[in-house]
Design a binder for these strands. Structure first.
Length: 346
DNA sequence: TCTGCCGGGAA
DNA sequence: TTCCCGGCAGA
């Protein structure tokens, strides 16, 4: 269930939420029910486990779902494409049901992910066969991934392409009501976006974005002493900049990796009531990419602080709590005016 | 009871 | 536009 927010009767969104939002996102368990229609009209249902070790950071702007860091398994949308029935599989546990050697699987994942890496792009694509023929672990490997595979000269145009692109684009289209781009980008480079409200600065290095956050937002004047050296970590997110300007959507915070927090289960319309104007995108990632994400760096799902859907009242310390009533002069203006805190936004 | 903040009004 | 506060709702 969505966390109950302080959206009182005065708030249209509050009324909206309470009335029309039967969501299927389980924040407590980190599970998300996802149902999407295939091109053939079948329904692919999956209970996609977001993160077993999911942690929710409460005290900082935005809601951060952060992996605990362990190789928590591979999130995937279970592949009903070959099966008309909707089978629910906890991917991190049940995937080996298929008779595949785990080592092979892992090696294939790594290969797949490496082949998608912009740094390791090569004309050859070691994964082309395994991707299409093995079928099962290619699920989720969509060309729409921000780390897309290099363009492959597909010799066998007659082969049915993996349908996940269709799924991905369709879901995206349904959820965000935007025309799906015909062609996705080719090359990708990492960038880091400042999530500080109404900032959105994009820098190309972690150091740079941290310095920006630290100097611009966190450490202002007398607040320097209070600055946490690591707090800036939570005010930026990694994004991918596509060098091809074509199809470039406005820079938006990214739903990173497997932590796709979208419950699409028959509630598209409700989500669209709710998600209008909230500009984030869902991307699918390859299993190998997910594996790498699990193993390389903590993967974060970052929702903007003004994504009021997940806004939880009182989770973040506000000026009043931080500075106390006796130091009211240190409050942000909004807090002094009893408005929504601008310094410690949820 | 405390807290956050919406809504509204005064300057 | 800035500033303040009554009052509501959640914790």
């Amino acid at each position: 269930m969505l966390p109950k927010t302080r959206l009182g009767k005065r708030s249209p969104l509050g009324a909206l939420l309470s009335a029309t939002c039967p969501t299927h996102t389980h924040l407590e368990t980190g599970e998300t029910d996802v149902t999407m229609a295939t091109a053939a009209g079948q329904q692919a249902s999956s209970r996609s486990r977001v993160h077993p070790g999911l942690k929710v950071r409460k005290t900082l702007p935005g809601v951060y779902f952060q992996c605990a860091g362990e190789p928590s398994g591979v999130d995937q949308i279970d592949g009903p494409l070959s099966s008309p029935s909707c089978r629910s599989v906890s991917s991190c546990i049940d995937v080996p049901k298929r008779s595949v050697d785990m080592d092979e699987l892992m090696a294939a994942m790594v290969l797949s992910s490496l082949s998608c890496s912009p740094l390791l792009q090569s004309p050859t694509h070691p994964d082309t066969t395994g991707n299409g023929s093995s079928g099962y672990w290619s699920v989720g490997h969509a060309p729409s991934s921000p780390m897309p595979s290099p363009p492959i000269a597909e010799p066998d145009a007659g082969v049915v392409p993996p349908t996940d692109e269709g799924l991905d684009m369709e879901l995206e289209q349904v959820l965000f009501d935007e025309p799906a781009p015909r062609k996705r980008r080719n090359s990708v480079k990492a960038a880091f976006r400042c999530l500080w409200p109404s900032c959105g600065k994009v820098l190309t290095s972690v150091v740079g974005i941290k310095r920006h956050i630290r100097t611009t937002h966190l450490c202002r004047g007398g607040e320097h002493e209070r600055c946490s050296r690591s707090e800036e970590d939570f005010y930026y997110t990694e994004i991918n900049q596509w060098e091809q300007p074509l199809c470039q959507s406005p820079p938006t915070p990214l739903l990173c990796g497997p932590s796709v927090l979208v419950s699409a289960k028959t509630n598209h319309k409700h989500l669209l009531l709710l998600l209008q104007g909230v500009s984030f995108r869902v991307r699918s990632v390859s299993v190998g990419e997910q594996w790498l994400q699990h193993h390389s760096a903590p993967c974060r799902l970052v929702l903007l602080s003004h994504c009021c859907i997940l806004r939880v009242r009182g989770e973040a310390k506000k000026c009043r709590k931080v500075y106390g009533i006796e130091h009211r002069e240190q409050w942000c203006t909004a807090c002094r005016w009893k408005k929504a805190c601008q310094r410690f936004t949820d």
